[in-house]
C-alpha cells in the first residue's frame, strides 16, 4: 500500500531512509538525518548501526534526540565511549561507512557551510559551526546529505567551506589526499540527486511524486542538471509513513517537558 497523503518533508525523510541498509555503520547528524536513520532502523534496516558524536554506538532511541547527547541515546546504545575515542578510533580509524549530514548552505559539488553567512571575520550571521562535520566529511566511507531546498540554502558559491565535498569538482578530493568517496547522495524535499561520475556535480536522478523540474530549479540557486533517465521516487508506503509519524509524535510528547 502506498499513500498519496504526505508532505514534502515526510517524502524527504522517507526517501533518505530507503538509502540505508542493515550493514551500514552510520554517523548521524542531528535533525533531518537523525529522523531518516531512525525510520530506516524502524522499517527495513533493523540492524543498522547508528552512531552519534557524543560517543553512543549502536543506539536505538524510541524518540528522536533533541541534541546529539540526549540520555535516550546512551540508555539504548550498545556502548558509550568517550569523545576522543569516538573521533580517533571509530571515525578516523575508518569504521564509519556513511556520514549523514545536514547543511545550512550547500553548493553543487556537495561542499557544506554551517559556519558563517558573509565574511568569516565580520559575519552577517554567525552560525553554530562545524562540530564534527569537517572530519566526518573526510573520514566516513561516503557522505549522504539531506536538506530542504531553497535558493538561500542551495547556492552557486558557499560563504565558507565548513566541510569539504568535491571542492571544485572532478578529482579535487584525491588531489588533497582524501581517500574516501565524499558526497554520493543528496536527498531534498523535492528530489534525489547523485554526483556526475566525472564532474562530481549533483544531478537530479529522481523527482519526488508530483514535483516538476521547474519546482526543483525555482528552489535551487545553481543551474540544475537532470539525468537523462529521470525517475520518479516511489510514494511513501503506509508502513513508512506510519512509522515516521509515530516517531514524530513520540518525540513531540517527550520533548514538551
Amino acid at each position: 500500500m502506498t499513500s498519496l497523503d504526505f508532505t514534502p518533508d515526510e517524502m524527504m525523510t522517507i526517501a533518505a531512509s530507503r538509502m540505508l541498509s542493515n550493514e551500514d555503520v552510520c554517523f548521524v547528524g542531528i535533525g533531518a538525518p537523525s529522523a531518516a536513520c531512525n525510520v530506516a532502523r524502524l522499517t527495513h534496516a533493523p540492524d543498522i548501526t547508528l552512531i552519534y558524536e557524543s560517543g553512543t554506538i549502536g543506539t536505538t532511541p524510541d524518540v528522536l534526540p533533541l541534541s546529539i547527547g540526549d540520555g535516550e541515546l546512551c540508555e539504548t546504545a550498545l556502548t558509550t565511549v568517550s569523545v576522543p575515542e569516538m573521533f580517533r578510533y571509530w571515525l578516523q580509524g575508518g569504521r564509519i561507512t556513511i556520514g549523514f549530514l545536514g547543511a545550512a548552505q550547500l553548493d553543487k559539488y556537495g561542499n557544506i557551510n554551517t559556519t558563517v553567512i558573509g565574511d568569516y571575520h565580520k559575519p552577517t550571521t554567525r552560525l553554530p559551526g562545524g562540530g564534527g562535520a569537517p572530519e566526518i566529511a573526510s573520514s566516513s566511507g561516503e557522505i549522504y546529505i539531506t536538506m530542504k531546498q531553497s535558493v538561500r540554502g542551495m547556492v552557486e558559491k558557499i560563504d565558507f567551506y565548513t566541510s569539504f565535498g568535491h571542492g571544485d569538482g572532478g578529482d579535487h578530493r584525491q588531489r588533497l589526499g582524501i581517500k574516501t568517496k565524499g558526497p554520493t547522495l543528496l536527498i531534498t524535499d523535492l528530489a534525489i540527486w547523485r554526483p556526475n561520475p566525472e564532474t562530481k556535480e549533483f544531478v537530479v536522478t529522481s523527482l519526488h511524486p508530483g514535483v516538476t523540474r521547474d519546482d526543483v530549479q525555482k528552489t535551487c540557486g545553481w543551474s540544475v542538471r537532470f539525468a537523462d533517465d529521470l525517475e520518479t521516487t516511489p510514494n511513501p508506503t503506509d508502513q513508512e509513513l506510519q512509522t515516521l509519524r509515530a516517531l514524530k509524535e513520540r518525540t513531540a510528547a517527550a520533548h514538551s517537558g
Partner: peptide, 10 residues
C-alpha cells in the same frame, strides 16, 4: 596530531 581539516576552511 590527527588526520583532519582536509579541504576545510577553518
Amino acid at each position: 596530531v590527527f588526520r583532519g581539516y582536509l579541504g576545510a576552511g577553518l
